[in-house]
Design a protein around this nucleic acid. Structure first.
Lengths: 241, 241
DNA sequence: ATATAAGATATGTGATCTCATATCCGTTAA
DNA sequence: TTAACGGATATGAGATCACATATCTTATAT
């Protein structure tokens, strides 16, 4: 019997394989693309087109898109047309008010939640990363840092369901925020303000001051909203509904 | 030329035909069924089974179910199993807190919105219908009246997007609330309390007192939650996750 | 009698095909 | 030159088929 003896126990090097469905991977990919600003608000998409880009058949894309339609991140603009949710001033303003309610509440709960020793450090780390990215002019990284900061904070509230709803709202407003970064000067200013407000939020959490945490997050949301509104007012006109 | 002359103008009796997709009708049907309590929390469903009941093929059902999964009304409990969202005490409690934030906010805004002369009358009408249904022991009608009252109120806030999110939350908690009506005595008591609280809410709106409206709605949500928790604690145990 | 294994059934996932129709483009007639 | 008609193309919706596998049933062996 040599070393190839099949009855002899030996080390296996096979690793478990990714068993997630194609549909799920398509969904996650589209979701990430929306949050990273790879789609413009109002941009038309087609199921077959996405399937080609993603290297799969239309079938999994259809169902991933159906989920995104349910989350209002993609909408049917006509009988046979799909598009990324467009920027509409009043609609976006409504979402901002809803976000202030929910994210403000999440921040308040996070500040009042049982102390997690690592939380403050993590928040600072995300905010520092965002700050450095802004100064380096890397707006994609700044966007990612901003997102990481917010979700670290909201996650500390200990409400998976709340986090889930907030994620959906970010998915709707993501392409709008991300595409607005094309105005570099405006967004540099915006992100610098954001970094400072995040600092206030961190202080509020450190002092377990729920009201102050809520206030800081609401200020952050509102100030970013104002910048985005200015961007869209002065540059792009929203596509017709 | 007789009366069948095709050149002679004549009255047409053809009415427009329903052009909505099967998928959309399946979705609306499932949605209504969930809100009316035709599904039990944790109940298993199959795509082919639903397709048979609805008299269609699995295809439109698949995509309608995908949307409901995105809304967390249906979930995948295993590799090849779908079920209606089950009752889980802490998860449900989290949803209750989120609903208090959002529905409280909606009520506050509704009370402070520009006066709609018909609103108070509509609210009273829904609440009276609910009250009569409770006394008649018609819990399905009472449930419908309760829903109509809440959405009439929240709709008056003038935030379609907020209404949409609240609808999604009701879709998740709908089967839980609806199935709990099986304990008649408990729910008779609950609905009677609800009718009274609704009266307080109507008064708050009539006086344009946003804080009072928020308070009334939050009390309504919380009291119904307590009744449901009691029901599930004393009767049914939630299916294992 | 019980436990294990083999076979049958059920079910979600994905691919492929068909269909209706919206959209685009070129041709033709006024 | 312009507008209207018609054909080609693109696209979402739906049906059908194929596949892998989880679950249930049944038979057999201990």
């Amino acid at each position: 019997m040599n070393s190839l003896d099949p009855t002899k126990p030996r080390m296996r090097t096979l690793a478990p394989v990714d068993v997630t469905t194609i549909q799920e991977r398509v969904y996650q990919s589209l979701r990430l693309g929306l949050l990273k600003g790879e789609f413009l608000p109002g941009e038309q998409v087609t199921i077959r087109g996405l399937a080609d880009v993603l290297g799969t058949s239309p079938m999994p894309v259809r169902e991933a898109v159906a989920r995104l339609i349910a989350e209002r991140a993609i909408e049917q603009s006509g009988p046979r047309t799909l598009r990324v949710a467009p920027y509409l001033a009043t609609e976006h303003e409504n979402y901002i008010r809803i976000r202030m309610q929910l994210e403000g509440y999440a921040a308040e709960r996070a500040a009042r939640a049982p102390r997690n020793p690592a939380l403050i450090g993590e928040l600072r780390r995300h905010n520092d990363a965002m700050s450095e990215a802004v100064e380096a002019g890397d707006f994609e990284a700044a966007l990612a840092g901003n997102q990481a900061f917010h979700f670290e904070l909201y996650g500390a509230a200990g409400y998976p369901q709340l986090l889930d709803i907030i994620s959906t709202l970010w998915l709707r407003t993501g392409p709008i925020v991300a595409s607005a970064r094309r105005d570099q000067a405006l967004f540099e200013r915006l992100f610098r303000i954001g970094v400072r407000i995040h600092g206030d939020a961190i202080d509020a959490v450190a002092q377990r001051d729920g009201a102050a945490a809520r206030w800081a997050v609401n200020l952050d949301i509102r100030s970013s909203h104002l910048a985005i509104r200015k961007f869209y007012k002065t540059s792009v006109e929203a596509p017709a509904r």
